[in-house]
Simulated scan of single mutants.
Amino acid sequence: MKKFGILVIVFIVCLAFLGFSANADIETQKISLNGSTSMEKMINAIKEGIEENYPELSLEPQFTGSSAGIEAVLNGTADIGNSSRYLKDAEKEKGLTENIVAIDAIVIVTDTQNKVDNLTTQQLIDIYKGKIRNWKEVGGEDLPIVVIGRESGSGTRSAFEEILNIEEQCQYANEINETGPIIAKVQSIPGAIGYVSLDVIDETVKPLSIDGVQASEETIQNGQYSLQRPFVMATRGAISQQNENIQHLFQFIQSEDGQKIIRAVGLVPVVE
C-alpha cells in the first residue's frame, strides 16, 4: 500500500509538471503591438476574444500613438504597429505593409448644452483654421469656440487634417495626448469642439452631423459620411511572411467572431 501511495503521488506531481510546462509554453507565445490610442478599445476587445480561439496566444499591446507604433515595428521593438491613418509612402518604402482591419469615423463633438446640431464641411474647416471663432456664426449662441485637437504625431489628428486638407493650418487652443481626455475636456468647457473616434462617443458629449449626415455604420460604408479613416495594423512585410502566431491573429480578426468584435466596439468591418 505504501508503494502504491508513493506511485500515486509521483503520478500527480508529473501531471502538475506537465500542466505547468504547457502553461509556460502558452505564456511564451506573445505578440507585441504598439500604436494608436484610438485603437485601444478595439485591440483590447480582440485581446480578450482571441483567447477562446487561440488560447496559446497572448497579445501585449501598448498605446503610445500611431507614429510611435509605426516606428516600433520599423526598429523591431513591436510585431505590429497600430495606426489610425494610412501609411505614408516613405513608411511603405521601408518595408511596412498596410493591413486595414476596420474603418472608423472621426466624429466632431461639442458640450451637451451646445444648440448647434450640424456643421458644413466648410464651416468645420473655418473653425479649425480660426476664421470662425464664435458659435453665433454657425447658428448657435453668442459663445466663443474653444478649438481642441490631438497632439502632433497623433494618427487621429493626421487623418482629420488630411481629410479636410488643413495640415499645419489649425489654430488649437488645446492639444491633448490621448482620446479619453479629449472627451473630458470638451465635456467640461462650454463652447468647446473636438474630434474623436466613433467608438468612444458617450452621453457626456454631443456628436455633430457633417453636411447633414450623422456617423453610422451605414453612412460610413456607403461613403456618405466624409470624416472616416482606416484602422491599420502594420507589419514588416506581408501577413503571409509573418510567423504562425501573427498569422493566427489576422485570421481571427477576419473570422466571423473577429468581425463581430469590430462591430461591437462601434467600428465598421472592411468589406472584401
Rank of each mutant, 00 (worst) to 15 (best):
L59T: 09
N75A: 12
G19R: 07
T110E: 10
M39W: 06
L59F: 10
T121N: 10
A22W: 11
K47E: 15
N44D: 14
I127Y: 01
M39R: 04
F17Y: 12
E40T: 11
I132C: 09
E52H: 13
L87M: 05
V13E: 00
T77P: 01
D89A: 12
G95Y: 08
M39C: 10
N75G: 11
R85W: 12
I31T: 08
S66P: 03
N114T: 03
F63W: 13
L33R: 01
K41M: 04
R85V: 15
I106V: 04
L119R: 05
K115G: 06
G95E: 09
G81V: 00
I125S: 15
G76L: 10
S67E: 13
A72N: 03
A68F: 09
Q113L: 09
D89K: 15
K88W: 01
D126C: 09
T77S: 15
S38N: 00
S67T: 15
V147G: 01
K115A: 14
Y128V: 04
D104N: 15
K41Y: 02
G81S: 02
T120W: 10
G76N: 08
T37M: 10
I148Y: 05
P55T: 08
D104S: 12
K47L: 07
S67V: 13
V109Q: 01
G95P: 08
G76R: 09
L96Y: 13
I103Y: 05
E141P: 04
T28S: 15
E60F: 03
S36F: 06
Q122E: 15
A72K: 02
Q62C: 00
A16S: 14
F20G: 05
I127L: 08
T120M: 11
V146I: 15
G76K: 12
I70W: 01
V146D: 02
D104W: 02
T97R: 06
R133F: 02
E91V: 11
K47G: 03
E98R: 02
I26W: 07
G140K: 09
L57N: 08
K129E: 11
D104E: 14
L143H: 10
E56Q: 07
Q113V: 07
D111G: 00
A78Q: 06
C14Y: 09
I148F: 03
K92D: 02
N82A: 14
G130S: 11
I26A: 04
V116R: 04
G19N: 13
T110K: 10
Q113H: 05
R85Q: 14
S58P: 00
E48I: 14
G65Y: 02
D79T: 07
N75I: 14
S67N: 14
K129T: 15
D126M: 12
A105G: 02
Y128H: 05
I145R: 00
V116T: 05
S83E: 02
E40K: 12
K115V: 12
T110D: 03
N114Y: 03
E93W: 08
N99L: 07
K115Y: 11
L57R: 08
L87K: 04
A45W: 02
